[in-house]
């Protein structure tokens, strides 16, 4: 056992990278669920974003354009879900699952020509002086912009939901769509916008995996991250900062357990391997003891004729 082999600075820096895809997808899904819609298609939207972002980055050479394309791709796929559930009033659970399956297949098809290609690397922030600071420089100022965008999004979603009129309306739609409708709010329009936002975020999260974290395209490469993001939203009791906490915990424990294994720590590997799930669930369950509950209209279809 040799703990000195673990470099804490690199550890923190890489846990932030590991957490970002979950964080992006999670914060998007939180907005969707706050509007009263349950979209189980996160995995499908992420993988679609992953290939859209990858393909556009390879073709144009610009990771920035790639991330934009990923957001657009995720949003387009979620538009399909919006049409099914908001216009055709299809069951949200079934449509969401279908979206995941569809996304996985579609991305495999789109990615045929992109296996084994190395994408142009995403530039990291490089602020003179700040990025060169010991410890803090590498952790706080040494990442790519998308990672900061993820954190900024959490803050923006939190502030919007809490302090703005738009946030209030979104929550009203999620809590009681009939009342919101009676007050003259366009329930379907608001929900569609929320779904599109969720799709765009999931797409960004997917592209973060294919462009930064791995970086390559492989079929099925999100390998279940979308489902973890979904679970995270529930365990975080639909609170933005807790999504951030949960994502960092999950990403953190994942990276820490790999580090401990490599350093030869004498904890049985099985426990280390399950630790990210256990720790994240435990912490968030304890936090949610304050009786936060799901948006009241979550998963229910809205029809104006009621």
């Amino acid at each position: 056992m040799d703990l000195s082999a673990i470099n804490p600075v690199l550890l923190v820096a890489s846990l932030m990278v590991a957490a970002t895809p979950i964080l992006l997808a999670g914060i998007g899904e939180l907005v969707v669920e706050k509007s009263g819609v349950l979209n189980l298609g996160v995995e499908g939207m992420m993988i679609t974003g992953a290939i859209c972002g990858f393909a556009v980055t390879v073709e144009t050479g610009s990771p920035a354009l790639g991330f934009v394309a990923a957001a657009v791709g995720g949003a387009l796929l979620s538009l399909l879900f919006a049409v099914l559930t908001q216009v055709a009033l299809a069951n949200q659970v079934a449509s969401g699952l279908a979206l995941t399956l569809f996304g996985l297949g579609l991305s495999a098809l789109m990615g045929q020509g992109y296996v084994g290609i190395k994408p142009p690397s995403t530039p990291k922030l490089d602020i003179p002086v700040l990025s060169d600071l010991p410890v803090v420089g590498r952790i706080l100022f040494g990442h790519d912009l998308v990672l900061y965008l993820g954190i900024a999004l959490v803050a923006a979603v939190w502030a919007t939901l809490k302090y703005t009129r738009a946030g209030l309306i979104l929550r009203a739609v999620g809590e009681n769509h009939d009342a919101a409708h009676a007050l003259g709010y366009k329930v379907i329009r608001i929900r569609t916008l929320a779904i599109l936002f969720g799709g765009a975020c999931a797409g960004l999260g997917g592209a973060y995996i294919s462009l930064v974290r791995v970086p390559q395209w492989t079929e099925g490469m999100t390998a279940g991250v979308g489902w973890i993001a979904l679970a995270l939203v529930v365990f975080a009791s639909w609170k933005p900062w807790r999504v951030l906490l949960g994502a960092y915990l999950f990403g953190g424990v994942t990276v820490v357990q790999l580090n401990l294994q490599a350093a030869g720590v004498a904890i049985p590997v099985e426990y280390l391997a399950m630790s990210p799930y256990l720790v994240t669930i435990l912490v968030l369950v304890i936090l949610s003891a304050d009786k936060s509950r799901a948006p009241a209209s979550l998963g229910r279809s809205f029809h104006a004729a009621h």
Binding site: A5, S14, A18, V225, L258, A262
Partner: peptide
């Protein structure tokens, strides 16, 4: 040898993480 068990056959993100951790540890 430093050995890391990924407990998966296929999970690119996790495999990449494992490789990065091993590289960080020398």
């Amino acid at each position: 040898f430093k050995i890391v068990w990924a407990y998966t056959w296929f999970d690119p993100a996790k495999e990449a993480d494992a490789a990065k951790v091993l590289i960080e540890q020398g």
